[in-house]
Design a protein around this nucleic acid. Structure first.
Lengths: 116, 116
DNA sequence: ATCATATATGAACAGTTGTTCATATGAGGA
DNA sequence: TCCTCATATGAACAACTGTTCATATATGAT
C-alpha cells in the first residue's frame, strides 16, 4: 500500500524519488546561488548593477549602508563570480559577471509581480 | 565626469539606477523566496517532492534527518505556501504548491549542469 | 615624501538559523 | 479507555551571518 510501512517508510517510493534527486554537490551549488541572493543588501546590489556598473561608494549610497559593509558584501559576490570589477584610478567599478544569476533574479521578479 | 564627485557619489548615475530598483517590499519578497531555497535540507525536500508527494517520515529518510528536524522545515515551507499537505489517517502527505518556485529550481539546476 | 581619498580587511558583537531533545497533539487500533 | 504511531511544537544550544569599528592598503595629488 501507499501507507508508510513497517518502520514508517514506503521503501519503494523513497527509492524511486531518491533516484531523481540531484547529487549533494549539485544541491550545494544551487544552495550557494540562492544563499547569495537571500540577503536584501546583496540582492539590492545585484539589482542596481543590472542597470549599470557602479563604484563602491555609489553602491553604498544606493543601499544606505557604510562603504565597509558594502565592501564585505561585494567581496562575497565577487568570490562567487557573480560580480567582477575593474579599477579606474582610485575608484573600483563593479558589474555583473553571471548571466544565470541575472535570469534567476528576473524570473523571481516576474513571479512576485504577476502574483499567481 | 564619470568619477565619483564631491562626496564620492555620482549623483546622476545613482539617481538613474535608483529609479530602476524595485521597491523594498518586492526585494524582501524575492529575498524570502531565495532564503527558503538556500538551505540544503529545504531544497532537498522540494527537489524530492518534485517527483511525487511524500509523508513526513519518508522525507526524513530521504534527507537523513530526524522527523522533528524535517517537521520544522516543512512548517517553514508550508507557511510560505511553497508546500501544501493532506491528511490520510495518521499520515500527512506533503506536496508542492508553488509553480514559481519549481521554475526557479529547474532553472538553477539547468545553470549548474550546463556550466557557463 | 606627505596627505587625502577609495576600497579592503580583521575582530568583535548582536541577531538569526537549523538541529536536537523533550514533550504535546491527534488519529487509529486493541 | 489505553496504547501506539505519525506528526508538531517549544526551548535550548551551537553555528553562522551581517554590520560596525578600527585599521590597512593603494592610488593620485600636492
Amino acid at each position: 500500500m501507499d501507507i508508510c510501512g513497517d518502520k514508517c517508510i514506503n521503501e519503494k517510493k523513497v527509492l524511486e524519488t531518491l533516484k531523481t534527486i540531484p547529487p549533494v554537490e549539485s544541491i550545494n551549488q544551487m544552495v550557494d546561488i540562492f544563499k547569495a541572493l537571500s540577503d536584501p543588501t546583496r540582492l539590492k546590489i545585484v539589482l542596481a548593477l543590472l542597470k549599470q556598473e557602479h563604484c563602491v561608494c555609489d553602491i553604498a549610497v544606493l543601499c544606505n549602508l557604510s562603504d565597509s559593509a558594502i565592501s564585505h558584501q561585494l567581496r562575497i559576490l565577487r568570490t562567487m563570480k557573480i560580480l567582477k570589477n575593474r579599477r579606474e584610478g582610485k575608484i573600483i567599478y563593479y558589474s555583473i559577471d553571471d548571466d544565470h544569476v541575472v535570469s534567476l533574479i528576473k524570473m523571481s521578479l516576474d513571479h512576485i509581480t504577476h502574483a499567481k
